[in-house]
């Protein structure tokens, strides 16, 4: 596990660059993570990220795409537009959370 600087915040990350400490994340860090993977955060992006953060706090694991859609109320199609190609991993990365473990 390494410490790196993102948006002037020192944060812990794993080998791939995913953050590993829930509390080191804030919106400034989230926006910087997004821009590193070519995503400009909009209100819709924040809605997804905030749901993921809240849900993680309750459940202790990162929500899958299905959960974001059924519990978070954000349609699957939209997730593929907001976080193209690999939405599950990308939205977890921006939210400072581990990759989702669930299969569906």
């Amino acid at each position: 596990m390494a410490v790196t600087t993102i948006a002037n915040h020192e944060v812990h990350v794993d080998d791939e660059g995913f953050m590993t400490s829930y509390d080191e994340w804030d919106e400034e860090v989230g926006a910087a993570l997004a821009s590193q993977i070519g995503i400009d955060m909009t209100e819709e992006h924040w809605r997804v990220v905030k749901f993921l953060r809240e849900d993680f706090k309750d459940q202790g694991e990162t929500a899958t795409i299905r959960r974001v859609s059924t519990v978070g109320g954000i349609p699957t199609k939209e997730l593929f537009v907001l976080f193209p190609k690999k939405p599950a991993k990308k939205m977890a990365y921006v939210a400072g959370l581990p990759k989702p473990k669930g299969c569906v």
Binding site: T4, N8, I37, G38, P84
Partner: peptide
Amino acid sequence: MTTTETAPAVVPDFGD
């Protein structure tokens, strides 16, 4: 402002 001990940011490869 930045400390010298921190590693450069690793960005995951999402295979885009």
